[in-house]
C-alpha cells in the first residue's frame, strides 16, 4: 500500500464561538492523485486547504504531508515546509504587482536561498513550458487573467513541490482562460504532479480531478473516485 502524501486524522478547526469550520475530518490523499475539494461557501474547503498548506493550525487532530506533521510546525518551519513541498495557486493569482513576471516566478526559489542565476534559468524553463516566456520582463498588470494564472502556476512549481494546492484557480477567469488553466492542470497531473483543487466548479473538478471530496458544514459528505475526462 502506498504511503499517503496527505493524511488528515480527526481534524477539527474552530474559530471563536460557533460551529467548527472543519469537524472531525479524516482524509488520505496518495501521491499522484488529483483531488477536488468541493462544497458550498462556508463548508470548510478553504480551511482544509489552509491546514494542508500550513497556513493555519487545527484545533484538534493531526495533519501530515509528505511525512511532515504540519500541525506541529512553528512559523519558520511552516514557511520552510511550504517553500520545499507546496506550490500554491490562488483564485486572484496573488502576483506581486511591483515585480516582473520573471521576478515573481523566481521569488520562492530565492527565498529558499537559490542563486539568482540558477533561479533565472529555472524560471525561464518554466515560463517557456507554460507558454508565457515572452512576458518574462513584463509586469503582471499587463497580462490577461489566464496568462496571470499561468505565471502563478509557474511560480507554484518553481521549487518542484510534492503537492500543488489550487484555490478556485479558474474562479476569476473568463471561460476561455478557465479552459486554458484547466488544460494546464490536467497536463501537470498527467506528468505525475499531485494536485489538490478547492473549488465549487463541478466542471473544473470533473476535468482535472481523479477524485472528489464533498464537504458540507465542515464534514466530509462524499468521497468519490472519478473517471477522468480528457
Amino acid at each position: 500500500m502506498t504511503t499517503p502524501l496527505i493524511e488528515l486524522h480527526e481534524v477539527t478547526r474552530r474559530y471563536d464561538e460557533g460551529p467548527p469550520a472543519l469537524n472531525d475530518v479524516s482524509l488520505s490523499i496518495a501521491p499522484g492523485e488529483a483531488v477536488a475539494i468541493l462544497g458550498p461557501s462556508g463548508s470548510g474547503k478553504s480551511t482544509l486547504l489552509n491546514l494542508v498548506a500550513g497556513l493555519d493550525r487545527p484545533s484538534a487532530g493531526t495533519v501530515t504531508v509528505d511525512g511532515v506533521r504540519v500541525d506541529q510546525l512553528g512559523e519558520a518551519a511552516s514557511a520552510k515546509y511550504r517553500r520545499a513541498r507546496i506550490g500554491l495557486v490562488f483564485q486572484f493569482f496573488n502576483l506581486l504587482d511591483d515585480l516582473t513576471v520573471a521576478d515573481n516566478v523566481m521569488l520562492p526559489a530565492q527565498l529558499a536561498g537559490m542563486s539568482r542565476g540558477t533561479a533565472e534559468r529555472r524560471a525561464t524553463e518554466l515560463l517557456g513550458r507554460l507558454g508565457v516566456d515572452r512576458h518574462a520582463a513584463a509586469y503582471p498588470g499587463r497580462l490577461s487573467g489566464g496568462e496571470r494564472q499561468r505565471v502563478a502556476v509557474a511560480r507554484a512549481l518553481m521549487n518542484k513541490p510534492a503537492l500543488l494546492l489550487a484555490d478556485e484557480p479558474t474562479g476569476a477567469l473568463d471561460t476561455a482562460s478557465g479552459e486554458d488553466v484547466m488544460r494546464l492542470l490536467t497536463e501537470l497531473h498527467a506528468d505525475g504532479q499531485t494536485v489538490v483543487l478547492v473549488t465549487h466548479d463541478l466542471v473544473l473538478a470533473e476535468r482535472c480531478a481523479t477524485r472528489t471530496v464533498q464537504l458540507l458544514d465542515g464534514r466530509v459528505a462524499t468521497d468519490t473516485a472519478l473517471e477522468v475526462l480528457r
Binding site: 498548506a53 497556513l55 512559523e75 519558520a76 514557511a79 520552510k80 511550504r82 517553500r83 520545499a84 500554491l88 496573488n94 506581486l96 521569488l107 520562492p108 527565498l111 529558499a112 511560480r155 521549487n159
Partner: peptide
C-alpha cells in the same frame, strides 16, 4: 510572501 515560504 509568507505563503510562498518567507520565514518570520
Amino acid at each position: 510572501h509568507k505563503a510562498l515560504g518567507m520565514t518570520p
